[in-house]
């Protein structure tokens, strides 16, 4: 479905691009890195989504069964997609992705339940947007269930603005550049 989405006039950021290392609120050292395309990282992500609590699904993703998880991962790890992963050692603790949609990108972010409420989501979002800005992304949109106050709060804090609130889920947008600078 292609339609005109609205974005803020103002450019958000700047956001630091990965790699980023920080200590989360539970004292774990977390590395945020761009997905390197390796089989090892793919399998780590597949394991993360296999362990994902279905209660945290949003609009049907992540899917709940291994074959569907892999089909979905193949789709969002496409060549033009931008992906960053939050690592606790060898364990994928969180994942954020930008999937091309015309002249913009759709964003989604997932943090494994054991790693939630530790500040990882904020770092992961900023890392993804830094990576996006560096890669020449201009506009990003997402949808979120309106009752998900924690997520809406995080997106607003980072600079997303509500662009459509008439559907079941709310749409938000952010602008990373004005298009005059093509980026790196």
């Amino acid at each position: 479905m292609s339609r005109n989405r609205r974005y803020p006039d103002e450019i958000a950021g700047p956001f630091e691009s990965p790699p980023i290392t920080f200590e989360d609120r539970d004292g774990r050292e977390i590395d945020i890195r761009a997905h390197d395309g390796s089989d090892e990282e793919y399998e780590a992500l597949a394991s993360m989504y296999d362990a994902f609590d279905p209660a945290d699904r949003a609009q049907g993703i992540p899917p709940s069964e291994e074959r569907r998880i892999r089909e979905w991962l193949d789709n969002i790890l496409c060549a033009e997609c931008l992906n960053v992963v939050a690592w606790d050692g060898q364990t994928a603790a969180g994942h954020a992705t930008l999937v091309p949609d015309g002249d913009a990108y759709e964003l989604a972010i997932f943090v494994l339940q054991a790693y939630q409420e530790a500040g990882i989501g904020t770092h992961l979002m900023k890392g993804l947007l830094g990576y996006g800005a560096e890669s020449g992304v201009e506009k990003v949109w997402l949808t979120v269930e309106r009752w998900n106050k924690a997520a809406v709060g995080l997106y607003k804090k980072i600079g997303f603005e509500v662009s459509d609130s008439e559907s079941f889920e709310m749409e938000m947008g952010i602008r990373l550049s004005d298009g005059s600078d093509e980026g790196g």
């Binding site: 479905m1 949003a58 609009q59 049907g60 993703i61 899917p63 979905w72 789709n75 969002i76 992705t97 999937v99 091309p100 949609d101 759709e106 964003l107 989604a108 949808t143 008439e166 559907s167 079941f168 889920e169």
Partner: peptide, 12 residues
């Protein structure tokens, strides 16, 4: 329908 991300979207 599904978004590029694979999210299910209901029409109006």
């Amino acid at each position: 329908t599904t978004s590029p991300m694979g999210k299910i979207q209901l029409g109006s």
